[in-house]
Design a protein around this nucleic acid. Structure first.
Lengths: 225, 225
DNA sequence: GATTAAATTAAACGCATGTTTAAAATGTGT
DNA sequence: ACACATTTTAAACATGCGTTTAATTTAATC
């Protein structure tokens, strides 16, 4: 944590001077993201990351301090885009007169797809990172999310209660966690499932399709009387 | 795999002769089960198991051949009870005239609760083992389940299709995996969630309650038009 | 261009894992 | 009681991990 060298978070020069190669920091971040999203955090070693990024093993600890901090940096890059976008979408629902569960979940779509601005397959990567963050127990990530974006999550819960006033707090508690489970699982097993589906149904399947299916499903489960 | 000593699967003498202590094999199996269900497969080391079981480290490899084989033996002990029981329940639904999704999922309840015959908290343990088997990628376990009990799972799929004839194969495919996700997640995060719920709602929460909530949720998600 | 500061490098450290080995202990059949 | 097979044991093996160190190279500053 505090082991970080002072210059590590200095902002500007993200591109090396007289070279078209991205900086070491960015190379590490990009490669780590790709591998984390594919294999999970624990399954990905620093040696694997540094080798594929073509940087020295020790540079991860030099630039980020520790593997934990690297994980957090990778996730934060997406969170910092996603959460404000979601926040705005949720605010747009505050004035809705007859709010439905489906509306609330569909508010996730734009923020999710906007992540493709970060990377070509940003949506997919973010969801898989999230999935691993929860299925592996990366407590520090949960704490970071809760403390940095807790208010957004509170807002979400309030809207869901407004859309389902007949559900008790306890029922909402359980169903929300089931929603989370279905979502996380769909992403972690996502790539494998997409391939199976492709072979089985003889047409292209992409992340958008999966999300559409998922949203209908979780809305159905959550609204169940 | 084939490294197993020939006597390892010899059936009978599960209790040592002139001693009230269970056999080494059983001690390993019981302790491994307890730890696997609590921490997951990868998080539990053989040293932890053998230490708590009070047996020698090497005896796991002697009796089971490898850690993978031990994991499989632990899971199989439950599968061999659960799957036939589920099979029987599902057969009971074949003659149902107006089959509902809820009926299909409720057919899981008895087989699940029957696992408490194996261990006091057998239901909970089995579900958590299953959860870890899927969230960690224990491919060999998936293969074993598929090959040993594939017919039961096929039967389940057929019944769900009968209860929801309007759903396409593809929709059923996705929803079934979301169901699996919600279930697995609920169990892996289960203990933590149960404790939060207990504190939040000031009354006892047990595994049965969670399953009741879950079944309603997944039936709602799956039936969604 | 000399002097600092920052970044990179190769190597080692310390620890934990699953597995194997070979000797000792225990049990079994005659 | 002997001979043999089975089981248990302590120790080492081989591998992989995140991290640290100390020296070198590169960049920036005066």
């Amino acid at each position: 944590m505090s082991n970080l060298k002072s210059h590590a978070s200095d902002a500007p020069s993200s591109v090396r001077a007289s070279s078209n190669k991205p900086s070491t920091q960015k190379r590490i971040l990009d490669t780590a993201e790709r591998l984390f999203a594919r294999e999970g955090f624990e399954q990905t070693s620093l040696r694997q990351i540094t080798q594929e990024a073509d940087v020295n093993l020790a540079s991860v600890n030099y630039h980020f301090g520790s593997k934990k901090a690297l994980i957090q940096a990778v996730v934060a890059r997406y969170m910092d885009v996603f959460m404000p976008a979601l926040d705005e979408e949720l605010r747009g629902l505050d004035d809705e007169s007859a709010l439905t569960t489906l509306q609330v979940f569909e508010a996730f779509k734009l923020p999710l797809f906007s992540l493709n601005g970060i990377h070509k397959r940003g949506t997919e990567r973010f969801l898989r990172l999230l999935g691993f963050a929860y299925s592996e127990t990366q407590g520090h990530l949960r704490r970071y999310t809760q403390s940095a974006f807790g208010n957004v999550l509170q807002h979400l819960l309030a809207l869901l209660h407004r859309a389902n006033p007949e559900l008790s707090d306890e029922e909402m508690f359980w169903r929300l966690h089931f929603v989370l489970g279905a979502t996380v699982f769909a992403q972690v097993s996502g790539q494998a499932l997409i391939e199976i589906a492709r072979a089985e149904f003889n047409h292209e399947v992409n992340i958008k399709t999966v999300i559409e299916h998922l949203i209908v499903f979780i809305a159905g489960g959550l609204e169940r009387p």
